[in-house]
């Protein structure tokens, strides 16, 4: 049994507070990542954190590890460069949904194809929060944001199926389900191959507030009431969180003549 505060060894405590707004869920994800590191006792020398741009991107600087804060959307190729250069390193990407699924979406898809042995933790707040609250690739249909004043005309990306294409690891969890989030991150870190944890987290200031939530606690309660845990299912329904079951890796292709 680990000491409750042992996870703090992975943080630069002297840099706190973070730049995040009061009520932001990012701190919950950051803490849970560190708890998962602690549970696996990841060596501080030998673990590297890489992030992109946005609110979540700022979390890399708070790890008491070597960390790289890259350009917008480019955390995954930088992390892959690090991993292919030194396979002994544990390489963890921390970034947001806009960064990883929006601007960096192609890199995500290609990393799945390459099955690079890195772990990606996506702080999925469904919004471009740092720039004020614009629609993101996983903002739900019909939701009002600064750039969709009449409601989001598009359907949100459900990326879990991408991971099945190459037997990669995918889990969805939320900032309410703390033990589940920790379990997902631990399993993702242990997975040999490309792993991705979509951690739903709340943004009250540039998102929830405009949807009628009075505080971030109400958003947490929404996670509690809406999501049901369904681990190791073939696929996750809209209101389910969990780790998806791996499928055998496909090797279809044009045979050599």
């Amino acid at each position: 049994m680990n000491n409750d505060t042992n996870f703090k060894r992975y943080l630069k405590l002297d840099l706190l507070p973070t730049p995040w707004c009061p009520g932001c869920g990012n701190g919950i994800v950051l803490k849970t990542i560190c708890q998962a590191f602690d549970e696996l006792d990841l060596p501080k020398n030998g673990t590297v954190v890489v992030s992109g741009i946005g609110c979540a991107g700022r979390s890399a600087g708070f790890f008491d590890l070597d960390s790289v804060h890259t350009a917008h959307g480019r955390a995954i190729p930088v992390a892959e460069g690090i991993k292919y250069a030194n396979d002994a390193l544990n390489v963890v990407v921390v970034s947001g949904d806009g960064d990883l699924i929006g601007i960096g979406g192609n890199h995500l898809f290609q990393a799945i194809r390459r099955n690079t042995n890195i772990t990606v933790i996506c702080y999925a707040n469904e919004i471009y929060a740092m720039t004020g609250g614009q629609v993101s690739p996983i903002t739900p249909h019909n939701t009002k944001t600064l750039t969709t004043p009449n409601g989001n005309p598009d359907r949100p990306a459900d990326i879990q199926f991408l991971f099945k294409s190459n037997n990669c690891f995918f889990a969805r969890t939320t900032a309410y389900h703390l033990n589940h989030m920790r379990k997902c991150i631990v399993e993702a870190l242990k997975f040999k191959g490309f792993s991705f944890v979509e951690a739903r987290t709340m943004c009250i200031v540039n998102y929830g507030r405009r949807l009628g939530y009075k505080n971030s606690n109400e958003m947490l309660l929404h996670y509690k009431e809406f999501y049901k845990i369904n681990d190791y299912a073939e696929a996750l329904a809209e209101n389910e969180i969990g780790i998806i079951k791996s499928a055998p890796r496909s090797s279809d292709g044009f045979p050599s003549a």
Binding site: K12, K44, N45, V48, A60, D66, V68, I82, A88
Partner: peptide, 10 residues
Amino acid sequence: LGAGNRHFTG
């Protein structure tokens, strides 16, 4: 990388 607690940032 992997030898300290440096933060490389843009």
